[in-house]
């Protein structure tokens, strides 16, 4: 792997780690029924706006936007299981993608 490729992979991983951490906040907030749950869901939603670095994760980001939006809607409707399900799945998608990127298997479909 060239230095340029390694740097691009590092930047991509860093972006996914950012999204992962905002999803962590959102998940804990929803789980704990925090008064700030809608705010942290909104922060997670903001973290996936726009194109990711290099553009390789656009399909993943599209799925995350839909799931986080649905989670926020269900949370507003007081549907805890549906909101948790979507925010949990969002983070699982991101974390497995990070693992795949680290293994060089990111082209595979893991959900």
């Amino acid at each position: 792997m060239s230095g340029e490729e390694a740097a691009a992979r590092g930047l991509r991983t860093a972006h996914l780690l950012r999204v992962n951490s905002y999803l962590d906040w959102a998940m804990v907030s929803v789980w704990a029924a925090s008064a700030r749950a809608d705010v942290t869901l909104g922060m997670a939603e903001a973290s996936v706006r726009g194109k990711g670095p290099g553009g390789a994760d656009e399909e993943l980001l599209r799925k995350l936007r839909a799931l986080i939006r649905e989670s926020r809607e269900h949370y507003a409707d007081n549907d805890f299981p549906a909101a948790m399900s979507r925010v949990r799945t969002s983070q699982d998608l991101v974390s497995i993608r990070i693992i795949k990127v680290s293994e060089g298997r990111e082209e595979e479909d893991f959900g």
């Binding site: 299981p81 549906a82 948790m84 399900s85 979507r86 949990r88 799945t89 699982d92 998608l93 497995i96 693992i99 795949k100 893991f110 959900g111």
Partner: peptide, 19 residues
Amino acid sequence: IPYGDLPSTLHATLTAAEA
């Protein structure tokens, strides 16, 4: 269930297992 649900827990389990 009812803290988890089948779609998200099956997804987590299967995506981890495949990876």
